[in-house]
Design a protein around this nucleic acid. Structure first.
Lengths: 193, 193
DNA sequence: TCCTTTACATACAATGTGTCCGTATATCCA
DNA sequence: TGGATATACGGACACATTGTATGTAAAGGA
């Protein structure tokens, strides 16, 4: 088998990543097999292990990609607002919509904590949208300084659970509306009227 | 090997369950091995497969046991209060304390959703404390009927995340206090003054 | 007392992961 | 420009783990 040029190699890595994203979303981390991913990408497991650090490394690459995509959308929406409270609300709603697209919820919210361990998952999340959330909560006048971390964490949990709840009800517009409204109910309590 | 009497057999099943609980908590579902659990329980894998429906069945048994224990504590605390709002708050705080004891958080909140799938995990949770939470939210006058499900879900997510956050900071009394206070911040918004 | 069922132990087959090794060919460098 | 070297894989192997099938000895009922 001839060796591929650098551009072709990058294309191989990209295709593997794409297939992996699809398989992890469809089958979950545990049930997805590296061999299946490789075959669907048109390569052997050797290629996958060359480009990525094992099954977990491949999964991490997929997760980081998804996190980045979602964080970008969240930040973009939040930045449209000016004051802290509005930014928090806009970002939260954007997060809910973003993570329920592209079947990212299962990968990021169900499999990632188990596969990476909760603390590593937290670090990954903090590097993406988690940090923004914490800062948004911190900017609120109504929240005491020593509760910022705990509250941001719990809001994150509420949104994540809402996302999974929605992911379990695809196409249910009423549920989506209810999730957003309920989230607002929690957020308005924290935002100064 | 002689066959055991019925009482001895029940004791075997109980010992296996206990060891499994310990191993799942320490190693996680994926990394724990049936052989290791069996050996630590003083039996072979054959005994485990006789008493439980495979690794997943054993895990489900452990999870159900933990759920029941926690639900009992939550209900006991909630029943000390009379009005709906106070019951919700008492139950929520009791849940936070209960699930962070005995290293149940990892099993129930991290591994269970991944191993069982999110929807099966939800059913398991609903059968235990989830249903109580929904009813408590429903009893609040301040929450519109069509938001009850979504809100209960999100509150559950907030509490679960708080539990994991605390489980990651064992013995940190300040964090525990902050988690409870932050949870109160969310709950007071929903409870009529 | 015999016979069925229970409670395991043991052996076996299947699947999946990670690693090692081979190799052809870009790419770098003298 | 022609070799040396590193890269991008493919293929084979070893290992771990799960589930199943089978054997078996004793308990408990008829």
């Amino acid at each position: 088998m001839p060796r591929a040029t650098a551009a072709v190699a990058a294309e191989t890595a990209r295709r593997v990543l794409e297939v992996a994203r699809d398989r992890f979303a469809a089958d979950g981390f545990a049930a997805a097999s590296v061999d299946d991913i490789a075959r669907r990408a048109g390569v052997t497991r050797g290629a996958v292990y060359h480009h990525y650090d094992g099954k977990l490394g491949l999964f991490v690459a997929v997760a980081e990609r998804l996190q980045a995509e979602i964080a970008a959308r969240v930040v973009a929406e939040a930045e449209k607002e000016t004051d802290a409270a509005a930014q928090l609300r806009a970002g939260s709603h954007a997060f809910l919509d973003a993570i329920t697209d592209d079947r990212a919820a299962r990968i990021l919210l169900v499999d990632a904590p188990a596969a990476l361990g909760w603390s590593r998952w937290r670090e990954l999340d903090a590097a993406a949208s988690g940090r923004e959330l914490r800062e948004a909560v911190e900017a609120l006048e109504t929240v005491p300084e020593d509760l910022v971390d705990a509250l941001a964490q719990q809001l994150s949990g509420a949104m994540n659970e809402a996302a999974l709840w929605l992911a379990d009800r695809p196409g249910d517009a009423r549920a989506r509306e209810a999730a957003h409204s309920a989230l607002d109910l929690l957020l308005v309590a924290l935002t100064p009227s």
